[in-house]
Write a protein that binds this DNA or RNA. Structure first.
Lengths: 197, 197
DNA sequence: CGCGTGATTGAAACCCTTCAAGTTTAGTGG
DNA sequence: CCACTAAACTTGAAGGGTTTCAATCACGCG
């Protein structure tokens, strides 16, 4: 029921098998249907979600009511509105399932517990945070400097797995362009490259 | 020589005066001239800079050699390439001075020391990190959803002090538009609003 | 003074969006 | 398994916003 999460904690999270045993009782899994929500705007995000199976997205609405995807999360990714969790402030985000998914629900108690049990995890978590910032900076840089086509190519390189599993209009939303534009970008790439994918 | 830094540590950093006394010997200040560099692409960023006085910028170059400003830092702001510091990896960024400035140089030893001395600072630093992420997400969202004019208006609200101290072409670089476009945006705002600034 | 940097303005080009079909794909119920 | 419908994707033409290129203006500084 949470094999991915276990190997994630052991292989990347810095936990020893013994430490892992000490926190298993705090692990709660939940199955959710495609389209259902884990977080809505205005709510305080109290949980962090580990994707055991499936695919989630984190997005916001602008004043015009249009979606803008901030992040995709497939197997073995963590997703939450960190700011809302940390500051216990109402979130501006939505999190929902793009596919039927199984998620591990990580609450404050879980983190307290795992930090008490494992020194390694604390380090890993810090590392994760730093990595997150690096990614966000990269993305900002790309939005500042790259064209739609360049951003799409970068997306393919960074998230080849996600690309095949999400509808194109969501990719467009992530890239900050319209679905029609992405369609044209793809057409253009297909005609120059001889491999249309 | 570092009044701002002192009151920053006491008022925001969570240090008591006694704790502050214990770390003063680790504080190094440096004066730098407008235009001089604190970090260049390819270097490993070992220092974090606290702006005691003046104004710095953090930027990158794209493949075409054009600058894209990621962050401004005026008095009492911290700036560094966190990723490079944390992972001891070559930076893709530049940091230079927009005005003659005085910066406090914070190295690994300083952080080790202050964390050993002050429990409050560790908490504050965590808070800072979370806040940083929140800001980056806000910016990404703005780049995804807002027009040049909207981004400019948001910039005015967020950094009214910086606005008056940097040349317009740098603001344009931060916003992800060309100086000419910013000029037109401003002209447009001046004619609709009756107050041209 | 004159030079260089930054800001402005204009015209044309370009990229992306908008709107409006049409086509394909996927999901559902008979 | 097919028929039907809705959603997703494609395509075209027109429009808007931003860029590009080039010229001009304003200003500060040696």
């Amino acid at each position: 029921m949470h094999q991915n999460f276990k190997s994630y904690l052991l292989r990347k999270g810095g936990l020893t098998p013994a430490e892992y045993e000490q926190i298993t009782s705090y692990i709660r899994a939940k199955k959710i249907k495609k389209g259902s929500y884990l977080l809505r705007e205005g709510e305080i995000c109290t949980l962090t979600f580990f994707v055991e199976a499936g695919l989630l997205r984190l997005y916001r609405l602008d004043e015009a009511g249009k979606e803008h995807i901030l992040q995709f999360a497939s197997e073995s990714w963590l997703v939450s509105d960190r700011g809302s969790v940390y500051f216990k402030a109402p979130s501006k985000c939505y999190i929902d399932a793009i596919e039927d998914s199984t998620v591990i629900l990580l609450d404050e108690e879980f983190f307290t517990q795992i930090n008490a049990v494992s020194k390694g995890f604390r380090k890993y978590n810090e590392r994760l945070l730093q990595n997150h910032i690096r990614h966000l900076n990269d993305r900002i840089n790309r939005l500042l400097s790259a064209s739609a086509k360049e951003r799409y190519l970068a997306f393919i390189k960074l998230y080849p797995d996600v690309l095949l599993r999400v509808p194109q209009w969501m990719v467009a939303s992530y890239l900050g362009i319209k679905p029609e534009s992405l369609s044209r970008v793809r057409k253009d790439l297909a005609s120059s490259h001889q491999k249309p994918t």
